[in-house]
Computed example of a mutant assay.
Amino acid sequence: MNELTHLRQDAFAPAHTADIADCLVKSSGLRIEIDRRRGRGAGLNPSGRFEQERREAFDDGWQSLEELAPFTTDVQVEKPRTAITRNDSPDISFDRSINPYRGCEHGCIYCFARPTHSFMGLSAGLDFEAKLFAKPDVPKLLERELSRPDYKVRAIAIGTNTDPYQPIEREWRIMRQILEVLHKANHPVAIVTKSALITRDLDILSDMAAKGLAKVGISVTTLDRKLARTMEPRASTPTKRLEAIKALNDAGVPTAVMVAPIIPALNDHEIERILDAGHAAGAREASYVLLRLPLEVSPLFRDWLLRNYPDRYRHVMSLVRSMRGGKDYDADFGKRMKGSGPYAWQIGRRFDITVKRLGMGHRGLPLRDDLFIRPDGGGIQLSLL
């Protein structure tokens, strides 16, 4: 509870004091020392929500917590049965996606994918950033799925859960192999990332884009390098992301700037500046997503906010809840991406006005699906008849 004693007592209204104290009480036994989590986004590593036991570290006088090893990145191989994941969500523009990795080393504190680590019996906190899963069989599985006679072509989205160009991609190169399969089959693909590593694959992407088969969205959350380092510790810097937008557009790859997520009272004042910078880099399309705090993400984000911006805690969370029906998060389709209420409306209007001023588009560029070349099977057993 040391953090609370360092805060000005008059900095919080009575209605929020209990909320802050509750956050501190719940996280105090779970918080990991800075030396063990240096370079990571989350400060907590609570047990997954499906676990029957809850464990926390404490000093019992026999062993100092300082002797525990720091969190290092550990990558395990996952053997999925399929490459393509399907969805029928009414408020997103794609019905299929591919995830080369589970977990993400970027460590973005706001990442809505963090709760998926609970399905592996791991924490949505530091485990999500340090205990990663690579899927090296995905390119081969993808080729097999595309070769099926009943496969119907529609754009595949990549990067919608965890970033396909996170740092471990330099070694594993799974995303590169996926693109090679899609390139050979003339299959449309839409990629979302916040990593400049995507420029490594300009040779494939530029050729696909020339046929109307590829487009990219680069997430630029802030132009403040200090905020980015704190909030997204292992992602590319804002400058590198803008350079990636320019490199992709110069190579003929349609690239949009994504202001995502917008966090009230933290980065929402940068909406216009980010769009201006993205447009100057060559982006002609733009989109935005409001901060999402599902399940375990909410306590992780609130703990991070209290540690790094204690003077803004009350204001940020008050605005978040004003756009989420009084809750930290509203998962209803149609509301989860943009929120509701006056402040959410204001953010939407500011975005729309700036996009119109810059002559940028809202709707995604359609990709072609009439050039598809079905792979030869990739090992699938052929019919006898």
Rank of each mutant, 00 (worst) to 15 (best):
F351M: 02
D332V: 05
W345E: 15
R314C: 08
M317V: 08
D330F: 00
S318D: 15
M317P: 00
P310D: 15
V316A: 10
R350Y: 06
D352K: 04
K335A: 10
Y309S: 00
R321S: 07
N308A: 03
V320P: 00
R350V: 12
Q346S: 14
D328H: 05
F351I: 02
D311H: 07
P342F: 06
V355K: 04
D352N: 03
D330L: 04
G339S: 09
S322C: 11
K335R: 12
K338P: 01
G325C: 09
L319R: 06
D311M: 09
D352Q: 05
I347L: 14
D311I: 00
G334R: 05
A331F: 02
D328C: 08
R314G: 09
K356G: 05
S318K: 09
A331N: 14
D311T: 07
R349M: 15
K356Q: 15
G334A: 09
I347Y: 02
D332L: 11
G326C: 09
S340C: 05
H315D: 15
F333A: 15
A344V: 10
I353K: 10
P342H: 03
M323K: 07
F333R: 04
V320A: 08
R324W: 11
F333L: 08
R312Y: 03
R307K: 08
M317Y: 02
V316G: 07
K327I: 05
M323P: 05
D352E: 14
Y343P: 01
R324K: 14
N308L: 07
G341V: 13
M323Y: 03
I353V: 15
